[in-house]
Amino acid sequence: NKFNKEMRNAYWEIALLPNLNNQQKRAFIRSLYDDPSQSANLLAEAKKLNDAQA
Rank of each mutant, 00 (worst) to 15 (best):
N21A: 07
E45P: 00
N21W: 06
L42K: 05
F28L: 14
D51N: 13
F3Q: 15
A52K: 11
A27N: 12
N21D: 13
S31Y: 08
E6A: 07
E45G: 06
N50M: 01
Q23A: 13
L32W: 02
N22G: 10
P18N: 10
N22I: 07
L16I: 05
K2F: 13
N41Q: 09
K47R: 14
E45T: 12
M7C: 03
F28M: 07
A40S: 10
D34N: 10
W12R: 14
K25W: 02
K48C: 04
Q23C: 13
A54G: 07
Y11P: 01
W12L: 12
Y33M: 11
S37A: 14
D34T: 05
M7S: 03
L17G: 00
N19P: 00
A46F: 02
Q23M: 13
A10P: 01
P36S: 04
Q53D: 07
P18I: 04
N9F: 12
N22L: 13
W12V: 07
L32Q: 01
D51E: 09
D51T: 08
A15T: 14
A46G: 02
N50W: 01
A52C: 05
A52G: 11
P18T: 06
K48R: 09
N41C: 05
Y33P: 01
N50C: 03
L17P: 00
R30P: 01
N22E: 09
N41W: 09
N1L: 03
A54V: 10
D34G: 10
N9I: 15
N9D: 08
I29R: 03
I14P: 00
Q38T: 06
L20Y: 00
M7E: 02
N4W: 14
L42R: 06
E13D: 04
W12F: 14
L43N: 02
S39H: 12
A27L: 05
K48A: 12
A10V: 09
L20V: 06
A44L: 13
N19M: 09
D35V: 10
N4L: 08
I29C: 05
D35H: 04
A46L: 01
N1E: 11
R26H: 13
S39E: 01
R30A: 15
R8S: 06
M7R: 01
N1C: 12
F3C: 15
S37K: 11
Q38P: 02
A54D: 06
Y33D: 01
L42D: 01
R8I: 14
E6D: 05
Q38E: 05
R30I: 11
R30F: 13
N22W: 12
I29W: 10
A15L: 15
S31K: 12
R26V: 09
N9M: 15
P36M: 04
L20A: 00
A44Q: 11
E6V: 04
Q38H: 09
F3Y: 05
N4G: 12
L43I: 09
E13A: 14
K48I: 14
R26D: 12
R8C: 15
S37Q: 13
D51S: 07
A54R: 05
I14C: 01
A40W: 10
A52Y: 10
A46D: 00
P36A: 04
R8G: 04
K25N: 01
Q38R: 03
L17W: 04
L43E: 03
N4V: 03
D35T: 12
A54I: 08
Q38S: 15
F3T: 15
N1P: 15
R26A: 11
Q24M: 04
N9W: 14
K25I: 03
E45Q: 11
R30M: 14
S39G: 13
N22Q: 11
A15K: 15
K47D: 02
P36G: 05
Q24V: 05
A54T: 13
L42C: 04
E45F: 09
A10M: 04
E6G: 02
A10W: 02
N1K: 09
K2E: 15
Q53R: 06
A27V: 09
A44W: 09
L43G: 02
Q24S: 06
N19I: 03
F3A: 15
D34E: 06
Q38Y: 10
S37E: 07
N50V: 01
E13C: 13
E6H: 03
L42Y: 06
F28A: 07
N41E: 09
D34F: 07
K48H: 11
L16W: 15
Y33F: 14
K5A: 03
D35W: 04
E13V: 12
Y11G: 03
A10Q: 02
E45D: 14
L16Q: 13
L16E: 12
N50K: 01
N21T: 11
I14G: 00
Y11A: 12
R26E: 10
N1T: 03
R8T: 10
D35R: 10
D51K: 08
L42N: 03
N1W: 00
D35L: 04
A44E: 05
A44R: 07
K25P: 00
N1D: 14
D34S: 05
A54S: 12
L42S: 12
A44T: 08
P36R: 03
S37P: 09
R26F: 09
R8F: 15
L32G: 01
A15F: 15
L17R: 01
K2M: 13
P18R: 08
I29V: 14
K47H: 07
N9G: 06
Q23G: 11
A52H: 11
E6T: 03
N19Y: 11
P36K: 03
Y33R: 03
N50T: 01
L49I: 09
A44F: 09
D51F: 10
K48Y: 10
A52R: 12
N41R: 11
F28R: 03
R8Y: 15
L49F: 10
L49W: 08
A15H: 15
E45K: 10
P18L: 07
L43P: 01
K47Y: 07
P18V: 06
K2T: 02
P18E: 10
I29M: 05
P18F: 03
R30K: 14
L17V: 00
I29Y: 06
A15M: 13
A52W: 06
D34I: 05
K2V: 03
A52V: 07
I14A: 00
A27C: 11
Q53L: 08
N4H: 12
L49G: 02
A52F: 10
E6S: 03
A10T: 08
A46S: 08
I14V: 05
A54F: 06
R26K: 09
K48Q: 11
S31W: 12
L17A: 13
P36L: 05
K25V: 03
E45M: 08
R26W: 14
Q53M: 12
P36I: 08
L43S: 10
A40V: 11
N50G: 03
A15D: 05
M7T: 03
L42G: 02
N1G: 09
I14Y: 00
N50A: 07
K2N: 15
S31H: 11
L32M: 04
W12D: 04
L49S: 04
L16H: 15
D51Y: 11
S37D: 04
A46P: 00
P36H: 04
I29H: 15
N22R: 10
A44D: 13
M7A: 07
N41A: 08
D34H: 04
L17N: 02
A27W: 11
L20M: 04
S37I: 07
Y33Q: 06
E45L: 10
N22K: 13
D35N: 08
A15N: 14
I29A: 08
K5N: 04
L32T: 01
A46K: 00
R8L: 15
K48G: 11
K48D: 09
A10N: 04
N41S: 11
P36T: 03
D51P: 01
Q38C: 04
E13R: 13
N41Y: 14
N4Y: 11
K25E: 01
A40L: 12
L42I: 12
S39Y: 08
L32R: 00
W12A: 07
N21C: 11
K5S: 01
